[in-house]
Design a protein around this nucleic acid. Structure first.
Lengths: 262, 262
DNA sequence: CGGGGATTTGACACATATCAAGAGCGGTGG
DNA sequence: CCACCGCTCTTGATATGTGTCAAATCCCCG
């Protein structure tokens, strides 16, 4: 099982980390410090000078492993910390009283989880690991404290909140005005771009979620998602093999956007 | 013209304000100070002790009048300030490259405009007055400064950002999973509740936007919006007379939500 | 009083949902 | 290693909600 192997690797990494700390090696090379984290450029320290980023190291006390299918937090849980995704993949699920639910986000390394709770002190959605994952726990109170002294932190935090708003915005646009074909094209292009920003391939990746989850996110039924994948494949835009996606013609995909009825 | 009359009243009020300041009267009674603003409870000072709220008075230098149809800021404009709505009504419009646009928000007094730009320094949507309005200009740099010293301000600001996120969330839910009837019911109930929070009637109000704008916001065509209004009226849930809305049966409206196919 | 945009309503088209059946794949246990 | 089981995915046939097109009416505003 591939996922298990991943966890083992992380566990090994962690043990190594602890060992290094114990023997007093150069702290700046520890992988669980913000200042040396590979995700620096997409996560909280982004845009900060390295001395400032170093101060963030005080922020992260704990890392938590979350196995596939496990809930990181649930709607209604008390809010105390934000979580920065260190590795893995998550989905957020909102629901309304009548029981209907919708996937409202997919989250990848470097992204911040828990932002929805800032206002209310109560989480508003369930957030669940789609594969074995690891998150850095960021105590919110501490983040607020540090914001006062670390130049650029508050700014970057606002940037992240705003990015969140902008992102949801794009989805509103998508849900409000786009046809099924366009929605799926946007979805793929968005994933592609986010993978690219994290140093992964932009043209070839594995979807961590089911067709049903994609459909829920895009406001479509899973059958429609499946049909659209088939159509894209028939048109030579992508190669789909189960959850393995290869983008063959990104330009063509972009061309789907804003195209009148097929 | 009613709108013009409103502006006149505001102009008069402003002149009065300036006069009072000039003669050194009790500053705390000036209507353009946060500490004495009638919207205190829904705007930035919400939840702050009055001494703290008083410090916000340093924040607002300027108020700007925006006439109906005028643009407060445009997508692409440089970002420098947030705007707190003092009176009036606004819509935000996002657009994608191909020219399609969607109304992504309606905004009423006490709400903050410009949040979308925090991350990028560039506004991402057009924000336009739906009636003659007035906004308090909040220089962002100053807000950041003050956040460091005024206890509770940063927290409240996060609360507002989060509320924004939560709101967009609800709309995603709406766009992603609801039928036309439910969308319009939610829309009306949401407006109703926001009016209530501001001291207006929850059951009787005037829509500031066209059917087309409502449709754009809800991901529906204007004809569909119109039909749903007619249906609600036929069912005795609301009384619709042009843009004048009277909610006759709020419980019935709520009952629309989560109801299976009509 | 006239004109133009907003709204309503009807007839029809179409995209997507729904229902249903079968195939593919991954994991499990013999 | 193979057979089986369950879940995910694909594909087809049909139903339906909403969009599209069109025309008439209404209302505000000049």
């Amino acid at each position: 099982m591939q996922a298990t192997a991943t966890v083992r690797a992380i566990e090994t990494g962690l043990r190594a980390t602890i060992a290094i700390r114990d023997i007093g090696s150069n702290v700046s090379r520890l992988p669980n410090l913000c200042s040396s984290c590979g995700l620096r450029e997409v996560c909280l320290p982004c845009g900060m000078r390295s001395e400032e980023a170093g101060k963030l190291d005080e922020l992260i006390y704990t890392r938590v492993r979350v196995k596939r299918g496990q809930v990181l937090y649930r709607a209604g849980d008390a809010f105390a910390s934000l979580y920065a995704i260190r590795s893995g993949f998550f989905k957020s699920v909102s629901s309304v009283e009548d029981g209907r639910e919708q996937v409202t986000g997919f989250h990848m390394p470097g992204e911040l989880l828990g932002i929805d709770a800032l206002g209310t002190d109560i989480h508003t959605r369930d957030t669940i690991a789609l594969e074995d994952s690891e998150v850095c726990v960021i105590p919110y109170a501490r983040l607020v404290e540090l914001s006062a002294s670390v130049e650029g932190l508050q700014r970057q935090f606002h940037r992240i909140l705003s990015r969140e708003i902008a992102g949801e915005h794009g989805i509103m646009m998508l849900l409000g005005t786009m046809r099924a074909e366009e929605r799926l094209a946007m979805f793929l292009l968005n994933l592609s771009q986010r993978f690219l920003a994290r140093g992964y391939s932009a043209t070839e990746f594995v979807l961590r979620m089911t067709r049903d989850e994609i459909g829920s996110y895009l406001g479509l039924k899973l059958e429609t998602v499946s049909r659209m994948f088939s159509r894209f494949q028939a048109e030579g835009l992508v190669e789909v093999s189960n959850r393995h996606i290869r983008i063959l013609d990104a330009t063509g995909l972009k061309g789907c956007l804003g195209r009148a009825t097929h």
